[in-house]
Design a protein around this nucleic acid. Structure first.
Length: 540
RNA sequence: GGCCCGAUCGUCUAGAGGCCUAGGACACGGGCCUUUCACGCCCGCGACACGGGUUCGACUCCCGUUCGGGUCACCA
């Protein structure tokens, strides 16, 4: 049997972290089994602008490397996709365009007596429900009092100005056993299931009906979805069996929970999450970068529960995927770093956890740091360059970036090393892209340097020594030797000289290796910067 | 409230009856390295929700309790 899985997003305008995890598990399972992963758009209840609301979702999936074998075309906005046509043998993949199939299924259900037309007004059903609740009835079911069982009754009810919905005629006894691949055997009493509506009075279809028809049509072998659908499964199985479809294998995933709780993660509760340190740190870091890029950082538009957030700050998609993959699944007792290939090779539904897992932004960040650390410098440059351009470091548009710019960014990235945790972190190194006159001084660091009068003195003595060097190019080895030689001759503390030098050259009190900084700036620029500081200090 | 599901360090998890005085990772605390910061390395802190069974033996199996969650729409 060919494994076919699917992810069925609703066009909401954004890709939720929990949704990605579901998509990822579907994708990993399909890939691990040599099967297909299908993307279907659940827009049965959508008003307009489906394309617009869908674009960020498709974009996010592709950014993460979750591609689909069948489904909607890829949006042109995504890098490398160039609007690739996808399609597939079961087109269209939008539920709003598949209504004829749903109508046929409803008609069939009606015909075989598995469903009926119901003319009740929602208030009437609601009243029955409330009465039953008041009476504390253990099991309540709609009386079917307004069911149109005969053509004559239908006519009569219609004459009253009523319109019909189609309801499922659920069995009133027996037990349904579902063999869930992650939860094991789960049982439901048919008698407790309601006569759910499957077609609305306006003729549109309810998700469950569409879902069942499409899963059959698309030959979905494994329905891997979030846990909240478990309770919906009986009605779906009822329909699918009435229709004579083959039951797919089910795997209900635990949902992704809020940090520190087992409640489902929600985009709207960001303000609450922000009270936690890890979460606040993650957002502060991102905000800092966004600010340098001139982006709006409102909670709604820039939200870490949505994948878009991570892309905008320059996270590595593989880091996010690695983290999400381990949220509810594990390979063994020690593997935490996996490449996509390894995930595909080892993923199994058997090892999916049963309980909800909290989203931990601190841990996600740790994965990001680790993946970034292991990235070759060339790739880092490619990733950081757009950020450098957008933050104005290079003072030119992307199309005019030269080999020299690229080299400079590469040098800074190499020197910064582990300090670059997301591609956006390049914005912290403006000091290597401005002239000496423009170099901003960190206030606190400046105060500290001023207090060290002898350090300033050392700086004044060091400048001529630097000047006397033959070559303009300063390698870290040369400056290292020079500084040590100077310290020896002056009998001073190396820390004092380095503190003053770092400040003069970068305007900061902390940063990466001083010798690397000098190498990037070169002899002339270094001297100009030292002189600027000396002048600034003596002017006071 | 009914039904369904879940429960190991703060968090993600390993654990399919003896390998467990419960292992790994993130976070946290301390130390080492070091020109600052970061990385790295070492050490530490820290959990089987509770109560009954079953068994020679239970984190593992069963029952109950508690707690947490999901679901009960003409939403998906």
């Amino acid at each position: 049997m060919t494994v076919r899985t699917r992810f069925a997003p609703s066009p909401t305008g954004y890709l939720h972290i929990g949704g990605v995890r579901t998509a990822l598990f579907n994708w990993l399972f399909a890939r691990s089994q040599g099967g297909q992963f299908i993307l279907r758009i659940d827009d049965t209840d959508q008003q307009r602008n489906v394309e617009e609301a869908l674009a960020p979702i498709l974009h996010g999936l592709l950014w993460l490397g979750i591609d689909w074998d069948e489904g909607p075309d890829q949006p042109p906005s995504v890098k490398h996709s160039e609007g690739r046509k996808v399609g597939g043998p079961h087109m269209p993949y939008y539920q709003s365009q598949r209504t004829a199939k749903y109508q046929a299924a409803v008609d069939r259900l009606l015909e075989i007596g598995a469903a009926y037309r119901d003319y009740a007004r929602s208030e009437e059903v609601q009243a029955e429900r409330e009465a039953a609740e008041k009476a504390k009835l253990p099991i309540w079911r709609y009386s079917r009092a307004w069911a149109g069982d005969t053509a004559e009754k239908c006519r009569q009810l219609e004459a009253e100005g009523r319109t019909a919905v189609v309801r499922l005629k659920m069995p009133d006894s027996g037990v349904l056993v579902i063999d869930d691949l992650v939860r094991g055997q789960v049982e439901f009493d048919w008698a407790r299931e309601q006569d759910h509506v499957i077609q609305r009075a306006d003729g549109s279809f309810i998700y469950h009906l569409a879902n069942v028809v499409d899963d059959e049509e698309f030959q979905i072998s494994h329905v891997i979805r979030a846990e909240e659908h478990l309770s919906n499964t009986p009605r779906q199985i009822f329909m699918l069996e009435a229709l004579g479809y083959k039951r797919p294998q089910y795997a209900h995933l635990p949902f992704v929970a809020e940090p520190g709780s087992h409640t489902k993660l929600s985009k709207r509760k960001l303000a609450k999450y922000l009270k936690q340190k890890d979460f606040a740190n993650l957002v502060n870091h991102a905000n800092h970068i966004a600010e340098a890029l001139g982006m709006a950082t409102t909670l709604d538009a820039f939200n870490p529960v949505v994948t878009d957030f991570y892309e905008q700050v320059g996270y590595l998609p593989e880091a996010l995927v690695n983290y999400l993959c381990l949220l509810g699944w594990s390979l063994d007792d020690h593997t935490d770093h996996l490449t996509i290939d390894q995930m595909i090779r080892h993923f199994t539904l058997e090892r999916v956890n049963k309980s909800a897992a909290s989203f931990d932004p601190g841990k996600l960040f740790a994965f990001e740091e680790r993946h970034m650390r292991e990235l070759p410098i060339d790739r880092k440059v490619e990733l950081a360059l757009p950020f450098a351009v957008r933050a104005g470091l290079l003072k030119k548009p992307f199309s005019e970036v030269s080999a020299a710019d690229r080299r400079r960014v590469g040098q800074v990235l190499a020197a910064a090393g582990d300090r670059i945790r997301t591609a956006g972190d390049i914005v912290d190194y403006t000091d290597f892209f401005v002239t000496a006159a423009e170099l901003p001084y960190d206030e606190k660091a400046l105060e500290k340097v001023k207090k060290k009068a002898d350090a300033i003195l050392l700086l004044a003595k060091f400048a001529p020594m630097l000047e006397s060097l033959d070559s303009e190019e300063l390698t870290a080895a040369i400056t290292d030797a020079l500084v040590h030689q100077f310290v020896e001759a002056e009998q001073c503390k190396i820390g004092d000289l380095i503190l003053a030098l770092r400040f003069a050259l970068t305007g900061k009190g902390v940063g990466f290796g001083l010798f690397e900084a000098m190498e990037i700036l070169g002899k002339t620029e270094s001297i100009v910067r030292i002189e600027r500081l000396l002048k600034a200090v003596s002017a006071e």
